[in-house]
């Protein structure tokens, strides 16, 4: 009974499952936010799995997801600026909830990893993750004012 994997399973079933339901149904505004939150929940799950499988090299996965997840959301924000201009998505509550999950997981994993280069890497991933998600949701809710193509 590996606690880390159990926690990862809970985050996957709850968080990522909710985002899959969110991105599949409802107005475009909510779908875009769900896509952003998907990375916000998936990255801590990957960190927990890396700790649960006792494989520090899996942290590279979480690093690349923390880097490219928000970039994917920027792509949607940039190219759907017209559709999103009329009813900008402003789900700040959800964004901060997801950021809180991240903020909970990263220290727990850091404590387990112990003070070392690995902990620095984990902290770096945490910063990237939370910063990326906040900026991405900022971009969604009006990051590209004029909606002309270009």
């Amino acid at each position: 009974m590996n606690g880390w994997i159990l926690a990862a399973a809970v985050i996957l079933a709850g968080g990522v499952g909710a985002t899959v339901w969110g991105v599949a149904t409802g107005p475009l505004r909510r779908r875009v936010v769900a896509q952003n939150l998907c990375t916000a929940f998936a990255c801590p799950a990957l960190l927990l799995l890396s700790q649960g499988y006792d494989r520090p090299s899996y942290v590279d996965l979480a690093l690349v997801l923390a880097l490219l997840g928000p970039v994917g959301t920027l792509v949607f924000a940039r190219l759907l600026a017209d559709e999103l201009a009329d009813d900008p998505p402003s789900a700040w509550g959800l964004t901060y909830a997801a950021a809180a999950v991240g903020a909970l997981v990263v220290p727990a994993v850091c404590v387990a990893a112990g003070p070392s280069r690995a902990m620095a890497k984990l902290l770096f991933v945490g910063v990237l993750l939370i910063g990326g998600n906040v900026v991405a949701s900022r971009a969604l809710s009006g990051g590209f004012p004029e909606a002309r193509h270009g």
């Binding site: 920027l74 924000a77 900026v135 900022r138 971009a139 009006g142 990051g143 590209f144 004012p145 004029e146 002309r148 270009g150």
Partner: peptide, 8 residues
């Protein structure tokens, strides 16, 4: 040119 919000 496309103006982009400062934090982004």
């Amino acid at each position: 040119p496309q103006e982009v919000a400062r934090p982004v």
